[in-house]
Nucleic acid binder design. Structure first.
Length: 256
DNA sequence: ATGGCCATTTACAATGGA
């Protein structure tokens, strides 16, 4: 099984690149974040023509999340929203059972500045995620943009982030607490010493300089850990026409 | 050395992103 997570920064603006990704990688599941469109504007027909159904939660002009599944997959128990989150109208969590696998697509709030109210909402969101991941019916896989760099190795220059969000102890402690409920960080599990990023600012030539951060994750339930055979970032989708500022993160899972 | 972007909105400036 091939699973992708990708913050597309507008599913409509990124539709050509998304269709390119579906054709290039033929994934079984794609967790999307930052749809940035209203429900009526979601490109469901184009995705259906590409062979995918898309349980989703649209939030209007911001956020929005989806789980793309193959048209012939069995999709059950779609749940929108994360119990306990501060602002459910922001559309940051959707999960579904696809062929028996419970998968969640998540877009954690950015937080902007550590002293801001949105930062407090971000911490609440991460705490609510921990509750969800500790539940009896917790997802097999949680994939998305967590907006936290797990370690200093996950940013291009730790000194450049002093005082900034994404690297604070408060955020990292809560990310660690997610993993402690019984999940592994798929990329880091398979590549313990290889710095790689999933996001690069559009500005300042950040991508060619590789000034990035690793903030997108596949969190896989530990009980499935031995199925994980590959995990990598396709940087080609950060290049070319109209790229997202995030690159897709791919994982390969054996059937059993 | 510094700074450089992009997407959205009943748009033409402001907001959010990270």
């Amino acid at each position: 099984m091939r699973v992708v997570t990708w913050n597309v920064n507008s599913v409509r603006a990124r539709l050509p690149r998304l269709l390119e990704l579906l054709g290039a990688h033929e994934p079984d599941l794609v967790c999307l974040q930052e749809l940035k469109c209203a429900e009526e504007a979601f490109p469901a027909e184009a995705l259906a023509e590409a062979g995918y159904t898309a349980p989703r939660l649209c939030g209007g002009r911001w956020a929005g999340v989806a789980v793309l599944a193959r048209r012939d997959a069995e999709v059950d128990d779609v749940r929108s929203g994360l119990p306990g989150e501060a602002r459910p109208e922001e559309a940051r969590w959707v999960e579904a059972v696809v062929d028996g696998w419970r998968v969640a697509s998540v877009y954690v709030p950015n937080g902007r500045e550590p002293a801001s109210p949105t930062f407090a909402d971000k911490l609440v969101f991460l705490e609510a995620m921990r509750e969800r991941l500790a539940a009896d019916d917790a997802p097999d896989l949680v994939a998305g943009d967590l907006n936290v760099a797990r370690d200093d190795a996950d940013v291009w220059d730790a000194e450049a982030f002093v005082g900034a969000t994404h690297v604070t102890g408060e955020e990292r402690e809560r990310l660690a607490a997610l993993l402690d409920t019984g999940y592994l960080d798929a990329y880091r599990r398979l590549h313990p010493d290889e710095p790689q990023f999933t996001w690069w600012d559009y500005r300042a030539g950040a991508f060619p300089r590789n000034h990035g951060m690793r903030i997108d994750y596949h969190l896989l339930a530990e009980r499935h850990g031995r199925r994980l055979t590959a995990c990598g970032i396709d940087r080609d989708f950060r290049k070319g026409p109209k790229p997202s500022d995030h690159a897709p993160l791919l994982a390969e899972l054996d059937a059993s």
